[in-house]
Design a protein around this nucleic acid. Structure first.
Lengths: 209, 209, 209, 209
DNA sequence: TATGAATGAGTCTTCATTCAT
DNA sequence: CATGAATGAAGACTCATTCAT
């Protein structure tokens, strides 16, 4: 029943719709990272995006919903960046794999610096609901780390220590460092590879010579 | 011109005023840690403290002001807990001094778990103003750490590395670990000495055997 | 200047246009009766009708306009159902004529139960403008009734009484009864003839034996 | 612990609080009767009452809540006005009792003309919730009427008829008449006793001589 | 000093209507 | 004619702060 012309029109409409959504999403990201969740009003977002109030609600259920989507995306990317270390015979050396992980995490966060600031600075403490959601995401990451430590210790690679605390430490170093350079780095100055290597070495070797 | 009786009256009044203030502060702390800065209303605070709305504003300029005071106190205690390591001949061994520092920090934060949660979870991202203030406090701590690392490296104790990143890592581990156990620890379960020692060892030795 | 072929096309187009309009009207009726004027959104109507937002405004000026048209139709039908009683020599007996009137009113309203609910429940109180319009329609009906009462009283058939009040009573009984059974009657259960006869007898004889 | 002076203060405060509430209630009544539920904004109510937005919400949970309270009051008064007819030997004659009932109902409604308009014009159709609530109230009244008719018929006073329909008719006449004169009567013109007597006679004797 | 009623600026959200395609 | 994305005016509600008593 639908002509080829119609198909084209429908496809273009869908694309436009998607683009619009994305545009608002990007603007919201900027606003949230600049002002934080609470100080950022829907008014700020629509001003940034140059759309009308109603348009915003055409694409998003609420201010909270757009925030949640933005955060969810980053968390998903983050989860995707962390791969379990493969300790089977033919695999790459563990250190290489860890470095790859750290590199991916650093890239992910640095590619989305604005949302990183939001995630690390303004997302916690918004809401009991949100805190739970975040805790869940971080918990999954920590679980992966803990299991890696268990394996590493069994293999004699990792120093015996409290793995719960250690996994918190890993997370803490990444968060603190990435927040710092996301806020600061207006751009080129930051050498991601350097960041990643230093982060990894810190966690592996500590401060002592 | 003031009689001894007057002196007494004035003193008692001052003491009462002080006590009242303190009581409200404590209640506010509880409320802020339970609900976060934004969700916590002045209504919640006065309900918890059992004082009238007007009374609140008799003692504090604004909701923001009481929050700032509460936070400032914890930050001050924290700053007080960190002592520069003394490397002069007769001083205690550096490791001991570091452990003492970590112990004091852990104690300070754990003694004020509620405010610790507030500091680490809900304080960042409230406000550009606040973020600057916090950044300042953390910056001072990091400066101390960086200088210590400079000294340590010069003395051949510390592995050569990016001290800016390293100081961020130290901060990050403490924040993450202390937040985790402040939220979780309903009480006895947490062994502060264990926490402190693990934290220190992690930062000094890293994960590798 | 227009060929016969064109005439056909134009006629078909007009018919289509008319059908479309009618379809939207019917759907709107359903929606209004289900949700009331205010709760019913244009969104509901177009969803029910399966047309686009813009299409709606192609056929109707506004939400208010379609509502007004729907209501106007029912009011017109109602007005058409009430015939002046013919008291000339050869006419049917007055009671017969009254019963016919009541039968027609009951049928009209019951045939359009949905709009009846709208008319009696949600139309009043929408708007000062609307109220005036309704008052006008009801006023005309009441005028007819009052004149009938005047005649009846002059003929010695009707008990002397305040005809203004009496005409309101007639209207009130019809409204209340018809609303009740329009809302309730999901269908067959209701015996229209019974309703009509009881209504008429109530208004003529009252409750006393 | 509380001095007599305090008691006085507290009592006065409570009275003031009550008065304020009542004042807003009265103004809201006026506004609702003038504009209807939907067209009436909280802005209108507070303008009429000369209080600030916040003050309104100090006393009432929501626009809906104040409306519900207003309506509830009238419905309660109405329920109180209708007394079951006492047919025991020594009681007043039924007609007297009925007339008393009608008089009380007319007085109740006419004393609160504004809310009567609201009740009869704008309350139905606001909301499914509201409709249910109203239906319940009216249902109780109708139940009383129906039982009275049952008794009356058993006693040979009431003409055999469909009591469900008859009770609807009674309600309908009262609603229609009272709405009409509440809207119209700017004041003295209306003779309540006349209204009541005509209403009663209509329902008892009908139109026929 | 203590109280708590009053304030009103500010925020989110809805929805009838328009208009470019 | 048909579409549906875009609009923005309007409305309800919150809450930190003030001030008369």
């Amino acid at each position: 029943m639908s002509s080829a012309r119609d198909d084209g029109r429908v496809a273009r409409a869908a694309r436009q719709r998607h683009d619009r959504r994305e545009q608002v999403l990007v603007c919201a990201e900027r606003v949230f990272s600049r002002k934080g969740y609470h100080a950022a009003g829907v008014a700020d977002i629509i001003a940034e995006a140059g759309v009308a109030r109603g348009t915003f609600y055409l694409y998003f259920e609420s201010k909270r919903a757009i925030f949640e989507e933005l955060l969810g995306r980053l968390l998903a990317r983050l989860a995707g960046a962390v791969k379990r270390v493969d300790v089977s015979p033919g695999a790459a050396p563990p250190f290489e794999q860890l470095l790859e992980n750290v590199n991916r995490v650093v890239d992910t966060l640095y590619d989305h610096r604005e949302m990183t600031i939001v995630l690390l600075r303004t997302a916690p403490g918004i809401d009991a609901d949100f805190d739970r959601k975040l805790e869940e995401s971080y918990g999954r990451l920590r679980a992966i780390i803990e299991r890696a430590l268990d394996t590493g210790e069994a293999m004699g690679l990792v120093r015996p220590c409290d793995h719960e605390i250690a996994s918190l430490c890993v997370l803490g170093t990444v968060k603190e460092v990435m927040l710092h350079y996301s806020v600061k780095g207006t751009g080129r100055g930051v050498d991601r590879r350097h960041l990643a290597r230093e982060l990894l070495e810190y966690n592996l070797k500590g401060l002592f010579r």
